[in-house]
Each structure stands twice: as structure tokens, then as C-alpha cells.
Design a protein around this nucleic acid. Structure first.
Lengths: 347, 347
DNA sequence: TTGTACGCGTTATCAG
DNA sequence: CTGATAACGCGTACAA
């Protein structure tokens, strides 16, 4: 007898019991057969098992994930958390790709969740994700604007969580931005360039570690090769006014009129710089070669003539999943953070 | 007695039973109190209920979503599906934002799922999402390259699904691209422009409806105002070679040397066209004003001097959720498709 | 190898 | 308003 109010007309999914009834065996047997727990040595058994599998297939049997989760005491589900605030939030799709890929290998599900910055401090608002027990762990991508308080907030939850794209001592996975600068300089010098600059419109308070490290990696690589450095503007923390992006690009080019190649912090800098260069008659890439950090190929995506230093977000996502799984398996939360090196420079 | 192998040291979540024990009442009572099923008229009752709530809070009780799902016969979960193939896949983050926002209002969860194009035809590969019963419905975003077969594949599943960003008669939600062209032309004419062009690098086979409709909306708006049309290159279906993006922009400018303003299919066209224009000394936006279709503000994101016609993906996502919910509630799968009009033109 | 019985956590029902 | 009970679907220990 059904005593729970069910939505009208929802076709009930097939249960183990129904498969069992059709096959003339018990539910336990069907479960064992479908899960391959029988050896099926004797031909008669094998044949009957085959029949059971066929019936399950015909009926479209799909085990109920909730029932399995209950029995198991775990959900085989991780949640990706990001702030989602329009205009503020940013996260790489390639990172989601990597997380999904790694979870798929484990046969886990991925829950996508947004938590607005405005809600995270508020004790009255408990987001749905934390109101119920529904996932085994969190993979959190948050912006530097509110890292301090937010880290504590999540770490206080009874769920293991790993961090994306922030530099911490434990439980974080992030691109090793310094190696990017090295690869870019290496590529440019191999092409014969000697007067290499670094262009960034970086802003934000505090400044994201990637702004500091991409510049740092560039400077280190330049020094290593005894090339003169200093072809970059100082980092700025205030958000630029409207139109200031172009101005900054123009300022960069007039400050360093001799640059023959530039490494750009992101694709936005590539566009701005390309426009500013063409405006003063310096053709890209003939006269000015550009390499930009980007989550995806800059030429194919934006139509700019620049090489792309692919930020290893995909691998970052994969490793975050692995770290989370290790924490869950061992129960040991003290996982050292991992820096993922760059390796791809695409045309 | 525990008879299931549990992962080592996983701290067991608090159950209703434990809260009940601490409070000296039964589990049923705790459930009722926490769910507000009691009126709590008498002061003594109210006080005891308060105590129960406090204990639940102290212990960090969080209802188990799996248990609830089982009892309910539904998961309160929808899955967003996209192909995820690197370099091929594309979907707007703002769409995810909209889906998440609408689901949050319903207190539903969102599962993120990728299904590679290569797997969808393959009967031997059943993706995890469809192997278990774990969601109530699907919201599917797929590219035109393999729509035909894919639609059938998903529609054959025992799950209700709605479609994103494709034009179909039923169960799809998509931006009404024609209104975008209207708004753009309206804005440009108000600024005094009369020689308006439309630039697209569109490719793909079949060509996506947005390529056809953005151009169509533009042409209609031009005709409506008795402005001469034809300032656009023919659509092309073959994927352009490397570097062809810039060439196409240059070709556009040399074909229509008199254009005073251009509507671009996407932000990539905005960049390419801006560079090509600056290269021949036509400054943007002084001499050539540009408006581009984009999921997000083109100036802020890419540093280009162009206005942004914000594609209503957010609303598209919201409406898709609403449609799915209506289908689930009524059991009636025949939901007419919805075209979401444009409204935002950002500086 | 099979059927039986049990329990995972929660909530609706029903008698007190 | 409360406690006891049953039931959701599944997987496994147990005895046959």
C-alpha cells in the first residue's frame, strides 16, 4: 500500500522486486546476478542468469541511487562550489571538465553549486548544499576577495573539502603559475626575441596569486637568460575605469617602445594589446609577437594572432578529485597542497 | 550491528535517532518538530520543541537526502547535460547560473554531466547518469553537429527532458535571436548610424540557428527602416583555416568600405574586426561603432570598445527549469517551446 | 546458488 | 501532541 503522496502520473521506475517477479526468482538473486556476485559455473545457472539480465534490460531496470547511498552510508557524490555572483564570479570550464572526468572514472556524480559571497557570512542562510547530507565532499573555487572568512566557513563544515586556484599549505590544488612564465620566455627566445615584456591589467584587492606569480615567473626566466627585465607596468589593485584597459595597453607600448614580444596575463590583455599595437602601426604578430595565458586556445576562440599558454585547469580539477578521494579513503585531512605545472603552449 | 563495509574513519553523520535520544523523545517527534508539523500551541510544548531544535542544531543534524528521496519517490534533482568535448563543446556559464538560480528556489539540486558525442550513439556505453535512477529530469544543451540522433536518444529515456538553445516545436527553450538584431539596429540608428553591417565568422555544419536568426533579425530591422541592406558576407559552413578569422574581417571591411557601424555575431568577431579596422586606420569606436552579441559584457571581459547585446541565457536556464517542473507536475510532456527575447544592451 | 530477513534514515499513519 | 510502526529500494549475512 502506498502511503506517501506521489506526484501525479509519474511513471514509477522499475524495482529489483519487479524484475525478480518477472524472472520467477527473489530480489536478492537478481541483485547478485546483476552485480556479478555469482560465479555462474554451471551452464544452467549461467543460462538463467542471462535470462535475468535480459529481463532487467527489457524492463529498463536502473538501480535507485538513493537506496544504494543509504545502504552504503555514502553518496559517491562530490559538489563543485563557486560563488556565482554575476560579474564577480569566474571559474574555468576546463576545470569543471577535469573534475567531471576524474569523477566519472570513479563512477561518482558531480553536483554544481553556487554560493553568493553575500550569503557566506550570514548565519541565517544555510545553503541547500549544507542543509542536507547529500554529498561526500566539496571542491571549492573561490575568489580572493573573500578568501579569509570563506575558508574558515567551509573548513568548519563536517564535510571534507579541497580548494581550487588558491595557494594554501593544505588541501588546495592550483596551477603553478611560475612555470608558465618560464615556458613563454623559452618559446620567445627560441624564436629569436630578446626584448620581452609582460603585460597585465591585473586588479583586485587582494591581488590574486596568479597575477603575482605569472609576473614573477616571467622575471625569473628573464634573469636566468641575462635579458634585461623591467618591461612591465606595476601591478594595480584598483579596478580600472571604463576605457582604462585600452589606455593601459597604450601606456605599456609607449613605456616600452622597443619590445619585440609580450607575454599577456590573460586573453583580455591579448585583445587590448593587439588593438593598441595595430593602432600605432605595429603589426601582430609580424612586428610584435604575443603569447597569452588562457584556459583555451586564443586564436580559435577569439581570433587573435597569439600563442596560448594553456592554464592547466583540467589537470587541476582532476587532482582536486584525487585529493578529495584520498582524504575520504584514509580519513586523513592533512593533504599537502599541489601545484600543477604548465606544459601546453598552443599555436 | 553494522554489516556494510564502511570507509575507515568516516565520521558518521548525526541521525534523527541520535537527536531523539539526546532529547528524550522519539525520532518521529523530532522529525515533526523540525519540519514544523506541530502547532506548538501550549507553552510547554513550544518550549520542548525549542529544546529539540537546539539539540539538533548543536549536534549539527542534517537530514539524509537519500532517505528523503526514497520515501518521496523523487530526488528533487535535475541534471544539466552537455557534451564536454574539448574544442567542440560550448555552453554559457550564465545559462548554468540561471538553471541553478531557478532550482535553488525550488530547493532542488543540480547535477552537472558531460556526455561525449562519441559515446552517445554507442549502445555499449551507458553513462553513469542513465545507469542509475538518480535524477528527476534532464536539461540538455547540445550542439547542432549531432542533434538529430541525440534528440531521439534522450527522448527515448524514461526521464523527462527539456532542450536548451535549439529550436524545436516542443520542450525546448532558446534565445529569440531575431529580437537581438532589432535591438542592435535600433541602438545604432539612434546614434545616427545609417550604414550598418553584420559580421559573422559563422561556421559549422549544419549552421546553428543563431547564425541564421541573428543575421535574419538584422536584415529585417534594416528593411523596416528602409536602410540599404546587404552589408554582410554569406554564411560559410566549412571551418575556416588558421588565420582565416583575420582575413574574413579584412575581407568584410574591404567589401563594405563605407560601413559606419557593425553588429558582430559574437565577441570573437568583435576582436577580429576591431584589429582589422585599426590596422587600416579606422578607429573603434570613433569611426566604426561595434555591437556584439555576447553572454557577458565585452568591454569588461575582453577590453574591447564595443557594446554588448547580452544573450538571455540566464533567463533561458530559468525557463528551462520551469518547463521541466511543469512537465513533472502535470505528467504532460507536450510543453510548447519558448523563445526568450533579448532585452539588455550594455555599454 | 538460493530465498529470507534485516537494516540503512526518514516520514506518514494511526492509535493512544 | 506523542510513540510505535511500516514502508521506500537495495545489498548482504545467513541458513538451507
Amino acid at each position: 500500500m502506498i502511503y506517501v503522496n506521489l506526484p501525479k502520473q509519474r511513471p514509477q521506475p522499475i524495482t529489483l522486486e519487479e524484475v525478480a517477479t518477472r524472472a520467477g526468482v527473489s530480489a536478492g538473486t537478481v541483485s547478485r546476478v546483476l552485480n556479478g556476485k555469482n560465479k555462474e559455473n554451471r551452464p544452467a545457472i549461467a543460462k538463467r542468469s542471462e535470462k535475468i539480465r535480459q529481463i532487467a534490460l527489457d524492463l529498463g531496470y536502473r538501480p535507485n541511487a538513493a537506496a544504494r547511498s543509504m545502504l552504503r552510508g555514502a553518496f559517491r557524490t562530490a559538489a563543485f562550489v563557486t560563488c556565482g555572483d554575476p560579474g564577480i564570479d569566474w571559474y574555468p570550464i576546463t576545470g569543471l571538465n577535469g573534475i567531471h572526468a576524474a569523477l566519472t572514472e570513479l563512477d561518482w556524480r558531480l553536483i554544481y553549486n553556487e554560493m553568493p559571497a553575500s550569503q557566506i557570512g550570514d548565519p541565517d542562510i544555510v545553503p541547500q548544499l549544507l542543509r542536507e547530507t547529500a554529498v561526500d565532499g566539496l571542491i571549492v573555487n573561490l575568489l580572493p576577495y573573500f578568501v579569509e572568512e570563506t575558508v574558515d566557513y567551509f573548513e568548519a563544515q563536517p564535510l571534507p573539502c579541497v580548494w581550487l586556484n588558491i595557494k594554501r599549505e593544505v588541501r588546495s590544488v592550483y596551477p603553478d603559475e611560475r612555470t608558465g612564465g618560464e615556458i613563454a620566455v623559452e618559446s620567445l627566445t627560441r624564436s629569436g626575441h630578446k626584448r620581452i615584456g609582460f603585460f597585465s591589467r591585473s586588479f583586485g584587492n587582494p591581488i590574486h596569486y596568479s597575477s603575482i606569480d605569472r609576473l614573477g615567473g616571467f622575471q625569473q626566466a628573464i634573469k636566468l637568460r641575462d635579458l634585461s627585465s623591467h618591461r612591465h607596468l606595476p601591478l594595480q589593485s584598483a579596478r580600472p575605469d571604463r576605457g582604462a584597459f585600452q589606455q593601459r595597453a597604450e601606456q605599456f607600448l609607449s613605456s616600452f617602445p622597443d619590445v619585440d614580444s609580450v607575454i599577456c596575463y590573460e586573453s583580455a590583455e591579448v585583445s587590448s594589446l593587439t588593438v593598441a599595437a595595430e593602432r600605432i602601426g605595429r603589426r601582430v604578430p609580424d612586428v610584435l609577437e604575443i603569447i597569452g595565458f588562457s584556459e583555451r586556445n586564443i586564436h580559435d576562440t577569439f581570433g587573435m594572432n597569439a600563442k596560448s599558454l594553456i592554464i592547466p585547469f583540467h589537470e587541476t580539477g582532476r587532482q582536486a578529485v584525487n585529493m578529495l578521494q584520498r582524504i575520504l579513503e584514509t580519513g586523513n585531512r592533512d593533504a599537502s597542497s599541489i601545484a600543477i605545472p604548465y606544459s601546453l603552449l598552443e599555436d
